[in-house]
Design a protein around this nucleic acid. Structure first.
Lengths: 212, 212
DNA sequence: GTCTATATAAGGATAGAC
DNA sequence: GTCTATCCTTATATAGAC
């Protein structure tokens, strides 16, 4: 309600986000974007300069807030539930899922994120890791601290698995899973719980030399 | 060595696979494909009819064999290690990672797979689920049978998480992780072990009502 | 800041000679 | 089966009027 969605720039960002989610970056033309945003084709270059820069701005708009919320939740988890793995994971997961409930295209954005993850486009990956890599490192440290028995190498793998599970779960979210009977909020809450349980249990797997 | 890689058709498939892995489907032009395959631009339409059909053939070439190996390994696991979750998971995971070691572009293909997973392109998804959906269903059944305490709904989520972790791990595989010191085979074996342990542990997480 | 018009390039696909 | 040449569409980007 606050300025969003009503000026040309934000209309373009919203339309781009939604189309990128559906069709990918290369698969979406600026013509489609400006047509959906109901602005002139020339506006996108006026406001963003190029398609690549538009893509970056789509990320920046959401990731700034998402990163802040994650780090804030991590802070709370550390203070109120020190050493509790599931709270740390929830601090990472819940803000992302909450975003996917947000009106004004949050739903689309989580799928854009998944896409960026899968597309190994170097320029895009570099932009994201440059601007938001510190968030991942913060969580890595917090999670590793909970699991002293897991070797550094195993931990590297496992964090990757968690990231993959989260990313694809978010992408699928609201896509083919939303049953008519369940409302969106409940569905979202459930997804977060399931993922936190699964990830915590996977991360805690005993190393081979400690089994039996 | 057997017919592959030396006729026009297979050269096109190989080049397409490799470029799709790097740039995605929409991001790759037929001109790039034919240029890398060192064949004429008209050849792709002569042999495949359209870009969409070429994409499908890239999948069919690998997935037929991958599916067979997975189902074969599942059969062996069922007979020799009945009810053992980790063997079932290995039957699913190892053939995929073995493929990623294959010369002649297997490395690229696992990344193509990940891309297909992320891109929610309906036509492509439909093709894959139509031709290979039965493999996933077979594994779902086998895995569920090992975990009677997990509700049907939770199981649905968890299988999604496993698929996400596997897909993403495979995609990253050989991309940014291969350290100079470790050879490819060992790296691959390790990845499979780590993923099997992680997935088994995640799938076995106790439902909330059975905790403590 | 927003439009029309257009420059310029690249895309998929095909026709027709060899 | 493979080539050249070309059609037609779509793309990004910009110039310049309003």
């Amino acid at each position: 309600m606050a300025g969003t969605q009503f000026n040309t720039k934000d209309r373009i960002l919203g339309a781009a986000e939604s189309l990128f989610a559906q069709q990918g970056f290369a698969g979406t033309s600026l013509r489609e974007v400006t047509s959906r945003a109901d602005v002139n084709i020339a506006a996108v270059n006026y406001h963003f300069g190029s398609k690549e820069n538009l893509i970056n701005e789509v990320f920046r708009r959401r990731l700034d807030e998402l990163s802040e919320r994650r780090l804030g939740a991590l802070q709370v988890a550390r203070e109120q539930h020190p050493g509790d793995l599931e709270w740390i994971l929830a601090a990472f997961i819940e803000p992302a899922l909450a975003l996917s409930l947000d009106r004004h295209g949050g739903t689309a954005f989580v799928r854009v994120l998944a896409r960026a993850y899968a597309e190994k486009d170097e320029r895009l990956r570099q932009f994201v890791s440059e601007h938001y890599g510190h968030v991942m490192r913060e969580f890595s440290k917090a999670i590793s601290a909970c699991l002293p028995d897991v070797s550094r190498e195993s931990m590297g793998w496992r964090l990757d698995f968690v990231a993959g599970a989260l990313t694809y779960a978010m992408a699928d979210f609201g896509h083919n899973k939303r049953m008519a009977a369940v409302n969106e909020q409940a569905h979202c809450k459930r997804a977060a719980q399931e993922l936190v349980r699964f990830a915590a249990s996977g991360l805690q797997a005993k190393p081979d030399h400690l089994r039996n």
